[in-house]
Amino acid sequence: MSLRELVVLGTSSAVPTRHRNHNGYFLRWDGQGVLFDPGEGTQRQMLHAGLSAHDIHWICVTHFHGDHCLGVPGVVQRIARDRVTHPVRAVFPASGQLYWRRLRHAAVFADTDKITEHPVAGPVAELAPLTARRLSHPVESYGYRLQEPDGRRMLPDRLKAHGIKGPEITELQRKGSVRGVTLEQCSVPRPGQSAAFVMDTRLCDPVFELADGADLLVIESTFLSSEAALAKEYGHLTAYDAGLVAARAGVRRLVLTHFSERYGLAEEPAFLEEVRRSYEGEVVLARDFTTVPVPRRR
């Protein structure tokens, strides 16, 4: 299986700080690179993380607040300047297409035809392997999920009992039966791996749908619960909310990010303490350049 991991490029929210850049998240997935929400400074953050324009195959923008998209001009121009030859698909809310065009053509440069635009609209949009769902924010915002198709895990003891080995195993997987022995007799269902990406939103059903059973959930945690009223007013989550989503959805590894500039690194223990009130699983408090593997299959 190809490498699947998250490289965090930025973890602040509306205002970058001395320790946290604007948003930016790069997911390696089966030889593809998915760049989520390239905020201001993403091009430079990629250099520090050892990533290049040639690593990008998708650019996914959740919405058009500046901290989630002001890095688009630099990223687009770098893709053109470095002469990336493979297709790069840009996914963003259709209602923000005017902003996308302004960002893509923010300065004079030799454009590239390798970037194709895929605006999404409606409650749910499918762009395999991506699913986008509309969230609850003052401007139209989408969350994303990557889902590997379900498969089957072969059971060596069952294969041995039926005398199936070598090339016959491949034939069994391909055809579904060998010498009267079925695939179901020698294997069990294996859920495909999944990663969900949820930024600016209030709690709503699509958040839980995106997170459902996810191996990796990257989710905003803008505020602590002491600012719960402010979070709801501005369409954000608290650390407790993020943990609640992870617990109810059965998430295996939770990554908290998008912290308000009002909180410094010294407040990190408070975020962990709060999320533990609602979620007992594995938690990563993201910092810039944190690398988080997608958990191995169950």
Score class of each variant (00 low, 15 high):
144 Y>A: 07
178 V>K: 09
126 E>F: 05
151 G>L: 11
143 G>V: 10
166 G>W: 11
136 S>E: 10
175 K>W: 04
154 M>W: 12
179 R>D: 13
128 A>Y: 00
139 V>G: 02
180 G>Y: 15
177 S>Q: 11
154 M>F: 15
128 A>H: 03
138 P>N: 10
156 P>N: 11
148 E>W: 07
133 R>Y: 01
161 A>Q: 03
150 D>L: 03
137 H>G: 06
156 P>W: 08
130 L>H: 03
175 K>Q: 15
175 K>E: 14
156 P>T: 11
153 R>C: 08
131 T>R: 15
133 R>F: 02
136 S>D: 15
125 A>V: 07
164 I>D: 00
179 R>V: 03
178 V>F: 11
167 P>S: 13
150 D>I: 02
154 M>V: 13
129 P>D: 12
171 E>L: 13
168 E>K: 06
144 Y>R: 09
131 T>Y: 09
174 R>S: 11
146 L>H: 00
150 D>H: 14
126 E>T: 14
128 A>I: 00
161 A>P: 00
169 I>A: 12
186 C>Y: 01
187 S>I: 03
172 L>M: 02
157 D>K: 07
163 G>I: 04
144 Y>D: 01
168 E>F: 03
179 R>N: 15
154 M>E: 05
167 P>E: 11
182 T>V: 11
175 K>A: 15
186 C>V: 13
180 G>A: 15
161 A>M: 01
140 E>Q: 03
159 L>Q: 07
183 L>K: 08
128 A>T: 03
146 L>K: 00
153 R>T: 10
